[in-house]
């Protein structure tokens, strides 16, 4: 069995590498959604991510969020269910 980094670690690593954020805040809110649809028991399903990055300058909200979602496609496939986003440019 391959040991994969947990979803929280892999979100952090990918986001930091891709967006070089000036500020980064990732909160695991899975506990608040215990027993809800999407809770697979791993405690790695619901997150809130707040980042400030120059990469979002001039981008619409939809474009910015798509950039993040696109990067995390694999995490969504692995069980990430909800990712609340607050993205802004400096």
């Amino acid at each position: 069995m391959t040991i994969q980094p947990d979803i929280e670690q892999s979100i952090e690593a990918k986001i930091k590498a891709a967006f070089n954020p000036l500020s980064f805040r990732l909160v695991n809110e899975s506990g608040k959604h215990k027993g809800h649809a999407g809770d697979d028991g791993t405690g790695q399903t619901h997150f809130r991510l707040e980042i400030v990055s120059a990469a979002f300058a001039g981008k619409t909200r939809v474009e910015s969020q798509r950039m993040v979602y696109g990067l995390l496609d694999e995490e969504f496939k692995r069980g990430l269910h909800a990712l609340a986003l607050k993205l802004s440019a400096p």
Binding site: R61, V62, Q65, R66, G70, A82, L83, A84
Partner: peptide, 23 residues
């Protein structure tokens, strides 16, 4: 090309999900 629900559309245009609508 949006991995989450809900999704809001106005006059055929995709607006976004919960965070965007709230903002």
């Amino acid at each position: 090309s949006w991995p989450t629900i809900p999704q809001l559309y106005i006059k055929g245009e995709f607006i976004g999900g919960c965070d965007i609508v709230r903002e």
